[in-house]
Design a protein around this nucleic acid. Structure first.
Length: 271
DNA sequence: CATCTTGTTACGTT
DNA sequence: AAACGTAACAAGAT
């Protein structure tokens, strides 16, 4: 489910507990989402700690506690964070619950494609420091996009956009939205883009990222009707620009939606 | 019942 | 050595 804007929405859910102490920890020790994190150790170390700060970077989240403890959360396909009352009774797919005096901070994930991390030590953990530049940052430049297109020149552009090593936080719906706006067919080879197309792609990445954060992050709302977003989910959906039926195929291993008129399959040669 | 899924990664092939 | 495609992970929705 979550791409960068949904992740940001979930991160804010736990803001309710900021600056307050963890009284008790529930952890499903054998859960796959722990990915090697030892539940007992996590419980021992987190009990009594203050939740200091949180941040999101692409689809990753990091929650910081006093005594240099860091809790990393990735939501996978079906993960979520929520807040409940202090007497909350963990449900079947809740894998980690941090109880505070007045609430319970809950991590839930039915499919368990998500991941919990737990690190000790000053500063941010190494895996966090090594994340690529956020899409909304000065470090994310058109040159980085060009270099990535060249490196993956034989792959379909849709698959390239889904690579978290360069486009942290982009997921299936955002990638389709970006390509639709950029007028690029998802099956175009990355190496076939003209310089002007790559520049437009960069602009659309920024535009869609800002829009997603604006429309989705505050209250899990929908983008406007003139975005592809609302039209892409069901078969029979039509392009919001001129009502043409949307194309649909698997590209880069994911269900992909596009408009043949906005995104011609033929390689465009020059602007 | 069959098919689908807003994500990632291990593995085999090119 | 990189780059690329695919299967697998698991459970719920349609």
């Amino acid at each position: 489910m979550p791409e960068l804007a949904e992740v940001e929405y979930y991160r804010r859910q736990w803001d309710a507990g900021m600056g307050e102490r963890i009284r008790r920890v529930f952890v499903r020790t054998q859960a796959r989402v722990l990915r090697g994190v030892e539940g007992q150790r996590l419980t021992t170390l987190l009990c009594g700690r203050l939740l200091h700060a949180s941040s999101a970077h692409g689809k990753q989240m990091l929650f910081r506690f006093d005594r240099e403890l860091s809790l990393g959360v990735h939501l996978g396909m079906t993960g979520s964070l929520s807040v409940h009352g202090p007497g909350y009774d963990p449900a079947r797919h809740d894998h980690l619950v941090l109880f505070q005096a007045r609430r319970a901070l809950v991590f839930s994930d039915p499919r368990q494609f998500g991941r919990i991390r737990f690190d000790e030590g000053p500063g941010d953990p190494r895996w966090w420091r090594e994340l690529p530049p956020p899409l909304i940052s000065r470090g994310f430049t058109p040159a980085l996009v060009r270099e990535w297109l060249a490196r993956h020149r034989r792959a379909p552009i849709k698959a390239v956009l889904l690579d978290q090593n360069r486009f942290p936080g982009l997921g299936n719906w955002m990638a389709d939205e970006i390509l639709w706006r950029a007028g690029l067919h998802p099956q175009r080879m990355a190496g076939s883009l003209a310089a002007s197309e790559a520049a437009e792609l960069w602009r659309c990445i920024r535009f869609v990222t800002r829009g997603a954060l604006r429309y989705v992050a505050p209250a899990f709302g929908d983008p406007p009707r003139h975005w592809l977003f609302l039209h892409r989910w069901h078969r029979g959906g039509r392009c919001p620009k001129h009502r043409r039926p949307l194309g649909r195929a698997t590209v880069g291993g994911r269900t992909t939606v596009w408009c043949d008129r906005c995104q011609p399959r033929r390689e465009t040669l020059l602007a």
